[in-house]
Design a protein around this nucleic acid. Structure first.
Lengths: 300, 300
DNA sequence: CCGACTTATACTCAATATGAGCATAAATGG
DNA sequence: CCATTTATGCTCATATTGAGTATAAGTCGG
């Protein structure tokens, strides 16, 4: 029953610079940082935390297990065993001047519906997917897959865009042979940088998880500086989720949930009226950490 | 880097008999079924599916990875390596006359707030936790832990009961030394059967995940018979979540989401007025599988 | 057959939450 | 001074939610 196995830990280390969500990479942005599980680690979580903190020098906040893979792609040629990869999402604060950070949306331009670039890549994807289903032999299958395209990419406004379906959208593009990882020639692929192995897939899993988490848990604050204005908070939420929020309603919900408190300081350089600075009042709320938050994310 | 490892798959196979959620066990209810990962399995998910279907003879519906553990408790004495356990939640339909099925709430009586037994065990837990924090030396720590007790077990109606915090509640009881797994003598433990290793913890993880899933995904129907009345559906939802539902509002939400359609048949043996039978219209909704459902779960 | 009891189903109503907009305040740069 | 920008307070229509009333259509015991 005991076989040769290699356990690999893969971290999706995420931070926000300015308003832009970023991910730590190695190999010129082609891979996520990963390392073997060491026997000195008390637990998997502790292993990831120690190893990431050693690599980056930063303390990390939220750490969360994503998924464990053991597909046959991962069988090692050299040994008899199989490769198991356990992926983690880790959040950290600032990272001025470090190398290896890449924008989320370099890999997933279509997930950033806020930007013109994102909308352009969505329009292109719509055409490519239309072409893909048109080439299908079986009519029933064609209808089924088109409905899948429509609901995942919100084609034709029949359904609303769901920002949490990052993984499902990537998998559809993979099946349609529109990403480089699926063996597609680069000139016929959808825009967006590819990664080695299944690392872009793991990044998609992490993005989806984080988009889901920030709605109901106060994890955004792990990515924010100590003090921030409400607009800065809103911009980070928007760039993480890729969708717009109504400014006044966002403020209302944040305030009435007492997630933040005023620092008393004022941010002058807003470009308009100065804004009050806030801090996350996590200490006070520590016991109430299970009540959950509710943050409104609506369409533009 | 390659070490001796044993990869163990652990399944939390869940079904509903009558209105009662049950879990498949071995070893007279002391363990969850588990088996080694075999190299013939294409993927982990396929491995779990094949192995569970072979064991039970039933087709299983929803399968979902829960968590991967590799704590030092799991280090094997016999080999140099470490034990990795990957746990899965799997749902299946009926299981008339099979052995090994146990009620969820045999292990977690306090999670069934609907029943008198559940409320009684909650009252007992409240007293035991009160005693636990009273014995703490440091006042600040005492306050902190008591707030944790209050918010997890909804003591004193300051916060509402959150049915999804199954794991957090179990971990609190473990820390407080009130469960047999923490080395507590049986007569001083909280009611509820214990399990070997960390299997009750894994069951808690599964219960929490399923309680979260049934709110937003139509997975309940994987546990229902082909045709059912709305009251049957409601009772299953209630027993899975452990809380009561307002009958009329439940009907309203189910109907207006078009999750079900009438079969045309009538269930006569309701004990009152006969009820219309419904079936899940998953085929029609297959493409819309991402829209999500919303099922109201409120307090008694 | 009657009346107590059970469940099914339709409908109403108030409280709250949500989405969208208006208005004013306070800074900037010409 | 005025256009522009951002901050912040407030209103309002609509949708959602929680809870209750009312009625229908069976059962069962006498």
């Amino acid at each position: 029953m005991t076989t040769h196995m290699m356990i690999e830990l893969i971290a999706v280390l995420t931070a926000v610079r300015g308003d832009v969500p970023q991910v730590m990479t190695i190999d010129h942005g082609r891979q996520l940082p990963s390392g073997p599980l060491e026997s000195t680690h008390r637990s998997l979580q502790a292993g990831v935390r120690a190893w990431v903190e050693r690599q980056t020098g930063h303390p990390i906040g939220h750490v969360e297990q994503l998924y464990t893979f053991a597909d046959h792609d991962r069988i090692l040629a050299t040994t008899q065993g199989r490769m198991i990869a356990i992926s983690y999402l880790a959040l950290t604060r600032s990272h001025a001047g470090e190398t290896g950070w890449r924008d989320w949306y370099d890999y997933f331009p279509w997930e950033n519906c806020k930007s013109d670039e994102g909308r352009a890549s969505l329009a292109l994807i719509e055409r490519l997917l239309c072409h893909w289903v048109a080439g299908m032999g079986h009519p029933a299958e064609r209808v089924r897959q088109w409905q899948r395209c429509v609901s995942l990419f919100a084609i034709g406004d029949m359904v609303a865009w769901n920002d949490e379906l990052v993984l499902q959208r990537y998998e559809l593009l993979y099946e349609a042979g529109l990403v480089a990882e699926a063996g597609c020639p680069p000139d016929r692929a959808v825009p967006g940088q590819s990664m080695h192995h299944d690392h872009r897939r793991i990044l998609a899993t992490a993005m989806a998880r984080l988009r889901a988490r920030i709605r109901y848990r106060p994890v955004v604050f792990e990515l924010m500086p100590e003090a921030f204005t409400l607009l800065q908070l809103q911009r980070v939420m928007e760039s993480l989720s890729g969708v717009h929020v109504h400014k006044q309603n966002f403020r209302r919900l944040i305030m009435q949930q007492q997630l933040v408190e005023e620092t008393g300081e004022i941010e002058e350089r807003t470009g308009g009226r100065p804004a009050r600075l806030f801090r996350f009042c996590g200490e006070v709320r520590q016991a109430r950490q299970f009540v959950g938050t509710k943050i409104p994310l609506v369409q533009p």
